[in-house]
Design a protein around this nucleic acid. Structure first.
Lengths: 126, 126
DNA sequence: GCTTGCCTTGACCTGGGCGTCAAGGCTTAC
DNA sequence: GTAAGCCTTGACGCCCAGGTCAAGGCAAGC
């Protein structure tokens, strides 16, 4: 299949596929006209990339998963490098969620104080 | 005080202050040499901006707070426009935190499955 | 008089993941 | 033969909050 069809089947764009190729993430064969040619396995790789991107992974972080699939594994996340990325991502997410919750709490306090400056947040007006 | 001193006292850089000026957020008076001149009130404005930036606010979102202070209020967040930004930010944070937690959960499941493919997460090996 | 240190403006660079032309080539349908 | 529709490469644009030169000016200290 050619680039347009692959893009359509994966719900993305040709520009994205060319970009992945420049990153060395999804290289393509070429036909006689110089057109890129892909097969079903490439669709699988692409879907793996897209899924992880949707999760907020950087492109580079998807590489171990793609290489894992390319190595013949049925899933991209069974390889040690992929698992390491998962674990790092969980740590990052936990840290980020924690920071966001802290910020949320601070803003909540400030909002309450600004809405009712007499309120000391303990319920006792000062 | 001049730009270098203000930047140092606020823990930021002169580049940042010039950038804020181009954005119309923190305009400066000029002395005879054309050098920017600031006073203590500007330091207060700048600290307000920095605090909100640290919370993850866009520069534009800090504008109501700055204008509130400039209007003479002792706090930048007592004005309606500032409160509206607070509320919008809380909603955004709640949505973002929710998404991140959902992603975190999905990755957690995938990690568990990939680490132990026999485990069905219910505790019963299949 | 010369260096040091502050300041000025202007302009390009960064990162991530593409979007959006521009100019051209090949094939197929009419 | 020509228009439509696919493809090619190259290159610039975008977003945001500044970073990082470059070239120059003015004042103080030695």
């Amino acid at each position: 299949m050619r680039i347009g069809e692959l893009a359509a089947r994966a719900g993305t764009t040709t520009r994205t596929l060319r970009y992945y190729e420049t990153r060395g993430l999804l290289p393509a064969r070429r036909d006689g006209n110089g057109h890129r040619t892909y097969d079903e396995a490439d669709l699988t790789l692409l879907r793996q990339i897209r899924t992880l991107q949707d999760f907020g992974f950087d492109l580079e972080e998807t590489r171990p998963f793609v290489e894992c699939l390319r190595a013949g594994h049925p899933e991209g996340d069974v390889c040690p490098a992929s698992l390491a990325v998962y674990r790092r991502k969980l740590d990052e997410l936990d840290a980020l969620i924690g920071e966001l919750q802290a910020v949320r709490a601070k803003i909540g306090v400030r909002l309450a104080l600004a809405e009712d400056p007499m309120c000391e947040l303990g319920g006792q007006g000062l």
